[in-house]
Amino acid sequence: MTVGLLMLAGGAAAGVFGSLLGLGGGILIVPMLTLGFGRDLREAVGVSLVCVIVTSSAAAGVYLERRVANLRLGMALELFTAIGALVGGLVAFVLSEEVLAGLFAALLVYVAVSMLRPRVARAADGPTDTGGATAAPFGLDLSGPGYRVRNLGRGAVGSLGAGVVSALLGIGGGLVKVPVMHLGMGVPLRVATATSNLMIGITASASAVIYLLRGEIDPYVAGPTAIGVFLGASAGSRVAHRVDLRLLRVLFVVVLLYTAVQMIRRAMGLSV
């Protein structure tokens, strides 16, 4: 019973941190389950994908109701994230645990460095393009009120990559999709974030189904973790405006770098 409650609490902590820092919980769930509870890395990725779907579906429902998410853009791009996730989900079973741990460590370092240099946040209102004609491929107009979507090809390639990364490492892929949409396609940051959330469900489920059917998702681990993440993310979104995010960001970077070191040790076959 104690382990179950600890898993619930760990999931909640991941959900709170993820929600406060806009990262989603996946980046923390995989290290928590592997380094904290000794689970297999592939199993942790499968469980993390389930958690990511739960939180993104809840958030996407709210974003759609409020008309912040761009449904048509999300649906067009999620076709490519789904293809990427299918490929990533199959490749994940070919790669060794050490290689996956090394890739995850690289992801952690990338996120830590990105958090110290939050370029996307500072560029929040920058590249929005409200004018100029852009030919809509196949008559597909994906633009929204006040902004024009451009470079659909760049978005497709970025989404494909986001899907592969998501399936390999158990994250939502928003780290890739939001900058691609915002900086590369001229979508306002708020809309890009909401649309990314909408896409995460399909991205993660395309690979989660592979993990599920190949027996890599343990219901006894996924249940407490997913409920914890859901509760934590809900709580985090309610208190976000009262928290000093600068201090939290520094603390989070330290945690990420420490976790990256542990993952590198795992990748090198050293005990952790």
């Binding site: 429902g61 109701e65 008309r67 912040v68 409200t130 929204g144 006040g146």
Partner: peptide, 30 residues
């Protein structure tokens, strides 16, 4: 560019019926 209305997307407008159905589906499913 764009101002607050741009950054808020469609927020405040009457929701598209399809968006509304999908929102309820996602919330209910969750």
């Amino acid at each position: 560019t764009g101002g607050a209305s741009t950054l808020r997307g469609h927020e405040g407008d009457t929701a598209d019926p399809l968006d509304r159905v999908l929102a309820r589906l996602l919330t209910g499913g969750t």
